[in-house]
Write a protein that binds this DNA or RNA. Structure first.
Lengths: 318, 318
DNA sequence: TTGTATGCGTTATCAG
DNA sequence: CTGATAACGCATACAA
């Protein structure tokens, strides 16, 4: 293993000069700097993370905590974790997935946390954390977070449905009292009001079978020329099935727009027009935000909202 | 931060005694051991991973490399990574997801690798690795691996189809020359032959649209009373759609059995009877195997096959 | 069986 | 601006 000392010898300087070239390059003269950099390249030197960690009293490990009680196969999280991993990897950090909320703080030490799926009851837990953390997802507790711009997403969707001349535009939301849901509803409501139309919102639990049954049960209430804006692809998938089961035509008579754009939208038949969240990018941003927060010794980072993209497919009119 | 020295003081022994209680408890008298353990508990001591890593010249980081060029939303990998993370976490290791195959070996150091999706062209890469590694998935290169027992899986499926009295039993495989595919076909073939039936195998690329089209195009060739055994849930999903599109009845006239049991099987309508791979468990086993390999300084570990489970649902007869 | 001295690779501190 | 030294927390080798 090539160490600082090896590089120092090669460049005929002390270890400290090499260390400075790495951590405080401005404190060393350009000539020496070049010399050292050449030596590092020649020897293919890579700093020993463990030694760094010990000297700095840091670990170079970030814990990722999913507090929500999810089915671990939820594909959404796959992309998120990939994005986080990518962001951390680039900067020399490893991620540790916490699989037991009680071990969030115990066990190995970490430099910081990325948390998602927290509920009101988790807030005390979070406030007891000794290390900085950032949150994935809007929240009303003032925690730093990254999320997609939910309101902008449903605004895009609603405007698209209007542009495609669907006469009636119905919103199917998720029956949770979460910030993201309110934002999605707000985008829909505002847009409809701007067009002098009356919002019509139904809230269902987030399962395709529920939305399918909902459509079938109330089939007579939905005249042709209706577009359903759904708060998730899961709901949208069920809506498609309900419409098809009842003999409705997609997209001529009924439009369906989903939200998420992760996996399910492509599995659906016809494939869903959907508001695609840039989940992997959100993961990278989370990593970047947390690492910056660490660099600034825990300073507040505020919020980052990324505008999602509307993917146009066969579940809405050409 | 509580250190070895703190515990030592508390217990009135030397640091080394504490260290021994942790790493070689048999070398210390029971009385002292109890004393030290009490002190550790009282102070809520947790070893500093970085210091351990430095002293042992290890990193406590395992890199997970997905060489296959996947859509990162593939839910399969979500469960796998969760399982690995869980297994590593328990034993004090962090995982680092490698997102760029070229940085597999460069960048930060790791104690070992868990690799999946390797192709023939990747073998040289793997053989150049300095640290021990284990593979997820059957392979013919003699590498240590963990996988589900693919042959046992299709055997279960085929026997179930026979027990449900489907007259014709057709296998839809994936058109790749991979070990897992051969094993799945073998389970089907052997079982049919034991029952004096003639195997009928078709190989398709692994997309639901392809299998859907396949069923529709050759609809006349499939008499009622046929059960399709598919090498993936993806294929099975398309088969269901094709059958429904053609007006066939599931499960009365046509049975469909999938393989994987991750997410898609539940999204399908009707939900799929499927061979469920214990993916998360496989991940844990991978972690355990690799860590054991490290403990045994790289000794060969052989293979571990886990028998999958047949989940019975609405796509086959009661 | 237990304790002492030393080193792992890096960085902060302070002296030159 | 550069270099010597000590320290981070733990484990190995050796001594008692």
């Amino acid at each position: 293993m090539v160490t600082l000392s090896d590089v120092a010898k090669q460049a005929n300087v002390s270890k400290m000069t090499v260390s400075r070239v790495i951590n405080h390059p401005e404190q060393v003269t350009p000539e020496l700097r070049d010399l050292v950099e050449a030596a590092m390249a020649a020897l293919n030197y890579h700093p020993n993370v463990a030694a760094k960690a010990l000297a700095n009293n840091r670990t170079n490990v970030i814990k990722v905590v999913i507090l929500e009680d999810i089915d671990t196969t939820e594909p959404y999280y796959m992309s998120l974790i990939f994005g986080i991993a990518k962001g951390l990897d680039k900067r020399g950090y490893a991620l540790q997935l916490v699989t037991d909320r009680h071990r969030m703080n115990g066990g190995n030490r970490a430099d910081g946390f990325i948390v998602t799926g927290e509920r009101a009851s988790d807030i005390p837990l979070l406030e007891m954390l000794n290390e900085p953390f950032v949150i994935f997802g809007e929240n009303r507790y003032g925690f730093d977070f990254v999320d997609s711009d939910n309101k902008a997403g449903t605004t895009l969707a609603t405007e698209y449905a209007l542009a495609k001349n669907y006469q009636s535009i119905v919103f199917l939301g998720i029956d949770v009292k979460e910030s993201f849901e309110y934002s999605r509803e707000a985008g829909y409501i505002n847009t409809l009001q701007q067009h002098q139309k009356i919002p019509q919102i139904h809230r269902l639990s987030n399962h395709s079978r529920v939305s399918q049954a909902f459509i079938c049960d109330r089939w007579e209430k939905f005249a042709p020329d209706t577009c359903f804006i759904c708060a998730s692809d899961r709901l949208a998938l069920g809506v498609e099935r309900g419409i098809i089961q009842k003999g409705g035509r997609i997209p001529e008579d009924f439009g369906v727009i989903g939200f998420d754009g992760v996996f399910l939208d492509q599995v659906a038949n016809p494939q869903l027009t959907t508001v695609k969240q840039p989940v992997e990018q959100l993961g990278e941003l989370l990593a970047r935000m947390l690492l910056q927060k660490l660099a600034q010794s825990g300073a507040q980072q505020g919020e980052v909202l990324v505008t999602p993209e509307l993917i146009k497919r066969g579940s809405t009119r050409e």
